[in-house]
Amino acid sequence: MNFDNILVEKSAALAKVIINRPKKLNALNKATIEELHLAFKSLDNDTNVKTILVTGSGDKAFVAGADISEFSDFSIEEGGSLAKAGQEMLFDFVENLATPVIAVVNGFALGGGLELAMACHFRIASDNAKMGLPEVSLGVIPGYGGTQRLPQLVGKGKAMEMIMTAGMISAEEAKQNGLVNYVTTQEELMPLAEKLASKILRNSSVAISAAISAVNANYKDGVNGFNTEIEAFGNCFGTEDFKEGTTAFLEKRKANFPGK
């Protein structure tokens, strides 16, 4: 599948999605959001792919925000439709993807860029990365899930500060506040991402998918996450991965999960 705004690379069970608009600091426009949706959907359906890394091209930006020129003259109705379509097509879609997605934040992650990183299952960052939600400086608020996911990750008070000041925080401050898991140099960033991915790849992809669903359930209105966990836990007992994992443990050997 060929794209105009992103690159997709696959190596064995690991896939990389690279947002490739360096002249725009990898800003998200409508076409890029649509391409990202198609790429994530295709990779999630590929039984050979077990982990996805998403990053930006170059060494300046992960995603420096949304492409403001596309919506600067929108009406109220058009603005609401933009947020709804974007959340459904990309941000909620990535959060609920059965395949684990790691955001590899290699520079600026602002506005929609930070919202994309937060939709991923976890994040790592280079030490030159800057993160923030500057939308109120434009007279609007985050519309791709930022007001919901940021408080979940850093707490209500810090989220309110970041959103109301429209300021940026450093990678180290992001780590201190739980927004990213690791901070490293630009040169060591992708090797670290691949190392983390390799640890994920050793485990049952079926169990990981169930765990993603169970964890996400805790953040959904009207859903009892404990019940979701109980049901998912029980379903694991009917999988080939469970049989292989427990058998390998009892036989004191490395498991070879079939992913079923």
Rank of each mutant, 00 (worst) to 15 (best):
F3R: 09
V101D: 01
S126F: 03
A12E: 13
P191W: 02
A27G: 00
N45W: 11
R202P: 03
G113D: 09
E188I: 00
V223C: 03
G80R: 14
R202W: 00
L7C: 03
N216G: 15
E194W: 04
D127M: 10
N5D: 06
L110Y: 06
E135T: 03
F62A: 01
Y144W: 08
E251C: 09
F74T: 05
L116S: 03
E77D: 15
T247F: 14
V105S: 04
L250K: 02
P134D: 03
F226V: 07
V49I: 14
I230R: 02
G79S: 14
A98F: 00
A211T: 05
T165P: 10
S137T: 15
K41R: 10
G107N: 13
G238K: 06
L196T: 10
K23Y: 03
E194N: 03
C120I: 10
A15T: 01
I19P: 08
F71T: 09
I230Q: 11
K10S: 00
A103R: 05
A174R: 03
K158A: 14
Y144D: 01
A125D: 01
I102C: 05
Q176M: 12
A210R: 15
A27L: 00
G143T: 07
M89K: 11
G146W: 13
E251M: 06
P258I: 07
D127R: 08
L28M: 13
E240G: 11
E78M: 10
V154G: 05
